[in-house]
Nucleic acid binder design. Structure first.
Lengths: 109, 109
DNA sequence: CATCTATATAGCCATATGGCTATGGAATCA
DNA sequence: TGATTCCATAGCCATATGGCTATATAGATG
């Protein structure tokens, strides 16, 4: 039931800067300087965001000389998507049941 | 690009208690006392969680005498699901491109 | 070696979050 | 009316979060 990683994933997704970073990384690997570029934020602030994303398992880092290029890890994202999907299934079934129930009532009258 | 509601939705989903409450509400309307029942948490704490969920647009409240039954609103959840899905599309396309690229390279050798 | 580039880390600050207790208010019920 | 039930609100506390500046470290380069 409980899932600290899922907690961390949703929390990571709750910030617009981090979502933008993920969107950028969906296009391919990028260095910190590159990721920093679109934002009016300091470099340490970006590094902090990257740490949050890494903690959530959403990205991982490599190394290329002084650079620490980040790339996506899609699995954590999938866990989040799965939770919502399972939720939606349950929700949909509920309406199916309601539909059947209403149909039954209609039949009975 | 920015979306305060999406921020709020993901933030709301990042807490296990709130996800459990949503799962319960997927089964149908429930009062605060009913929602409280599975948890070792005080009533005001549950009310606070409900407020967070309501702020995120994930639930809404009705009234029945002293009771304040809550029910789901699926739309906000859908926004979150949509964001992830659009993300995944982009991500998948990237691999498609990579596949094509590799195929091209292979052809050329 | 000296320096420059790329990034991380430390530490500060203000605000948000998640828990609690205490209290208040509205309906119901005796 | 008075007590009880259901819930909200206020206020406190500890910790987390998101921003910053200043500084440290690692690798490249003159």
């Amino acid at each position: 039931m409980e899932s600290p990683l899922l907690d961390a994933t949703f929390a990571a997704l709750s910030d617009p800067t981090r979502r933008a970073i993920l969107a950028r990384l969906a296009l391919g690997e990028a260095t910190v300087s590159e990721l920093m570029q679109p934002f009016a934020l300091s470099q340490p602030t970006i590094s902090k965001h990257l740490k949050v994303l890494e903690y959530a398992g959403l990205i991982e880092g490599g190394r290329d000389a002084q650079r620490r290029p980040r790339r996506l890890r899609a699995e954590a994202m999938k866990d989040a998507a799965d939770w919502i999907e399972r939720f939606r299934d349950q929700w949909d079934r509920r309406f199916d049941n309601l539909d059947r129930h209403l149909a039954t009532i209609k039949k009975e009258t």
